[in-house]
């Protein structure tokens, strides 16, 4: 008696497990939304950025966050620490000194990368995230329940949360100035950047441009466009003069971040077939056991 149930327990365990084990090898999200070919992006040339932090000011202004006076941003003492974007500043610039040559530090602007296949979008329990046709990954405030799973999922650790708010706390992250874009305007940071370290354009053209820059000035650029392939590609792309890992960039693979989890999800939930089959199996076992007991009686 006990052997039967033990065996069937093992069976169900293996059945459930095998569904999961089958999928992660080709870890691709089950359905990749076809993105419009003219989706936008920004190429950040960190060799051009001078760290004036005007983008921080413009960003806060564009998102109705307390911004202060623009001349406050001349203060370079903030570069002493490596900062992160948060709920009060959706983009920030960090400075990485070059050892032995203080003349050309590398300044790295950080904001949401606007992934091609965003982990936050895949993770969000209520589907509050959306990959817009402009390339922007945007968030619907009316849906969000504040579970912060997007923050767990994001490979770049970007979404921030308004922990201090008791009512209607929001997930805060760069929205690629989607409202401005819809009005035919440029993202605020791109517009204000004095040196055009931020080039706004079609993502495909930006990739071509980035590679052309590397080809023309191999001494100026490290031969890599960060964001071209990382986690399946991002709308924001970076050029740098040095190895990216030295500049606070994360070493990430080229598989989309939601790949493994989505294939597991779809493995378990393939059109509800596995759960229903499992239900039927259990029903059958129950019926058999009942009849057998009755027979014994």
């Amino acid at each position: 008696m006990s052997t039967i149930s033990r065996r069937s327990f093992i069976k169900t365990g293996i059945a459930a497990g095998s569904v999961m084990l089958a999928s992660p090898k080709d870890a691709r999200p089950a359905e990749v939304k076809t993105l419009p070919p003219d989706r936008r992006g920004v190429l950040v040339d960190t060799t051009v950025c001078i760290g004036c932090r005007r983008c921080e000011w413009a960003c806060k202004n564009a998102h109705s966050l307390p911004a202060g006076d623009i001349t406050d941003y001349d203060d370079e003492s903030v570069f002493a620490n490596k900062r992160r974007p948060d709920d009060k500043a959706l983009t920030i610039v960090n400075r990485y000194e070059k050892i032995g040559d203080e003349r050309f530090p590398t300044n790295v602007k950080i904001q949401c990368m606007h992934c091609e296949q965003p982990a936050c979008l895949s993770a969000c329990i209520v589907g509050a995230f959306k990959k817009d046709d402009t390339g922007a990954v945007v968030w619907d405030t009316d849906k969000c329940i504040g579970c912060r799973y997007c923050m767990v999922a994001c490979p770049f650790q970007i979404p921030a949360f308004e922990y201090e708010k008791a009512l209607d706390p929001k997930i805060m992250k760069c929205d690629f100035c989607i409202d401005r874009q819809k009005n035919g305007e440029l993202p605020a940071c791109v517009e204000i950047c004095p040196a055009e370290a931020l080039t706004f354009g079609k993502r495909s053209e930006l990739i071509t441009l980035a590679h052309r820059k590397i080809e023309l000035f191999p001494e100026r650029y490290y031969n890599k466009v960060y964001g071209e392939a990382e986690v399946g590609g991002t709308s924001w792309l970076y050029l740098a003069s040095r190895e990216f890992m030295e500049l606070g960039f994360l070493k990430l693979g080229t598989n989309p971040a939601p790949g493994v989890s989505e294939s597991i999800q779809h493995g378990i939930f393939a059109y509800f077939v596995p759960p229903i089959a499992f239900y039927a199996l259990l029903g059958g076992v129950m019926w058999l056991n009942k009849n057998r007991n009755r027979g014994e009686e």
């Binding site: 051009v48 001078i50 203080e102 003349r103 050309f104 035919g184 305007e185 440029l186 791109v190 517009e191 950047c193 004095p194 040196a195 055009e196 370290a197 080039t199 706004f200 354009g201 053209e205 930006l206 441009l209 052309r212």
Partner: peptide
């Protein structure tokens, strides 16, 4: 800045990139 041909920087960017190349180095 909102232009079709992004292969070269816009005027403001070109000025700054040109000037800053030397000024960054010279003035720190």
């Amino acid at each position: 800045r909102a232009r079709k041909d992004i292969s070269k920087p816009d005027l403001k960017g070109a000025y700054h990139q040109q000037c800053l190349n030397c000024h960054r180095e010279l003035e720190l």
